[in-house]
């Protein structure tokens, strides 16, 4: 329990730093750190496979992609602030209200005493059980997600293909 609090505090702080830090590279590094913390939560929830996948896919592949994009775009130049103060204020009010509502909503929840040992199955989050559920109960969404990736792939190729003639972007 103590470790859980420590990890959660770390997650929240690093997630906040993603938003607050001025340098985009720092933001990405904080985001990587956030993903590691979340992976720690997965371990505490006895989901080791998800932990590994989370680190490999998010902290590994996707974040490296983010870094590449940021380096290519060279965002460090100080661009003038495009938002007016009114927009910022409205955003802060809306976001703050949602935050308050969700704090209020979760405040009353009784977390209980944790898992009941009599019914606790230590194998729940293991690869075998996950696979059984994924390829039996959730087979259809699993297959149809491939359509989603396929559309994204076709779209990326279509939009990214170099056209003859002058370049427009």
């Amino acid at each position: 329990m103590q470790f859980w609090y420590f990890l959660t505090a770390l997650t929240l702080i690093s997630a906040l730093m993603v938003v607050l830090s001025k340098n985009p590279i720092h933001s990405v590094l904080y985001l990587v750190f956030t993903f590691f913390c979340i992976s720690g939560h997965y371990v505490l929830l006895n989901a080791q496979f998800l932990m590994a996948v989370n680190i490999i896919v998010y902290a590994g592949a996707i974040m490296v992609l983010f870094l590449f994009v940021i380096m290519m775009l060279d965002l460090r130049r100080n661009s003038p602030d495009s938002k007016t103060n009114l927009t910022k204020l409205a955003g802060a009010v809306v976001g703050g209200t949602v935050l308050v509502i969700f704090i209020a909503a979760t405040r009353k929840i009784n977390l209980g005493t944790g898992a009941d040992n009599a019914f606790y199955n230590s194998q729940t989050g293991m690869v075998e059980n996950l696979g059984q559920i994924l390829y039996r109960n959730y087979l259809l969404p699993f297959e149809l997600v491939s359509i989603l990736f396929f559309v994204a792939m076709v779209g990326a190729v279509m939009l990214g293909k170099r056209e003859a003639g002058e370049r427009n972007f």
Binding site: L144, I147, L148, V151, G155
Partner: peptide
């Protein structure tokens, strides 16, 4: 799940 995957397929196709 299906709602989410459906919305995503439709939306990603529309973005493209």
């Amino acid at each position: 799940f299906m709602l989410f995957v459906g919305i995503e397929i439709l939306s990603v196709a529309m973005y493209v």
